[in-house]
Amino acid sequence: MDELASMQLTAAAGPVAAEGDTLTIAGRTMRSRLVLGSGGFPSLELLSEAVAASGCELVTVALRRVLAGGEPKAGGSLVDVLSAAGVGVLPNTAGCRTARDAMLTARLAREAFATDWIKLEVIGDEDTLLPDAPELLRAAEELIDEGFVVLPYTTDDPVLARRLADVGCAAVMPLGSPIGSGMGVCNPYNIALLREAVDVPVVLDAGVGTASDAALAMELGCDGVMVASAIARARDPARMAAAMRAAVDAGRLARAAGRIPRRRYATPSTPDEGLADFG
């Protein structure tokens, strides 16, 4: 444990993915396949450390009412922190319950952050925060008409993902399990089917609890993984960010390498031929 605790977050724990392996969404090419959510970090310092350790190039931000007196002051400095880190800002419509609210939030985000990119969230259930499919599709379609680059937070339904891709979404972001639940990928079968159903990048979003969840998502064929709570609420966010980075790389490599099929019984890795006979 002491040895583990003293592990340095250096390049030694850094990227192992193939040189030149990049993820392109709507013409933007990124070396990192990890998208970081900025929510839940106890401080901007910890967020900044996690951004660096994750190697990510895209970080989500939300829009909320500014209180009189300029609070939250974190608003301006959050943008400054991300700008200093050299990462792109991906505004979201977190908390929106209707297509109308999500569309207005997206338009405001475009003004606030000078980007056409929007992570579109339309929540349909208070307990699970699951997406509202009809509202999501409607908002996606209208925002794309307005020139937005739409990355919808969606269910793990391959048919809905295809509909979202068909109306022009730049990527789809299916949930592994409910937001902040840390339950990982609850339906790997659906994620694999969804990957086959669309031609746009698939970025698993929500539910990742630890590094192996991110690796599994990549092994299932996802093009990227978005992680927020699992890093922000970890005891050591920067260390977890480094773990997620390595996991995404490991899963990507394993996917490319091609896993062996599952078998019900053992298959010896050592041949029986030449086995000694001890009488």
């Binding site: 959510g37 839940g40 931000v61 939300a62 909320r64 959050l78 405001l108 003004e111 606030a112």
Partner: peptide, 27 residues
């Protein structure tokens, strides 16, 4: 939305409901 370029010229109507939003950690 009131675009930034109109912040100096856009006059608030009677009983306007104004939302001023800023970047916050989230998502």
């Amino acid at each position: 939305v009131v675009p930034r370029a109109q912040w100096d010229s856009f006059a608030l109507p009677e009983d306007a409901r104004v939302e001023v939003l800023g970047a916050m950690q989230g998502g």
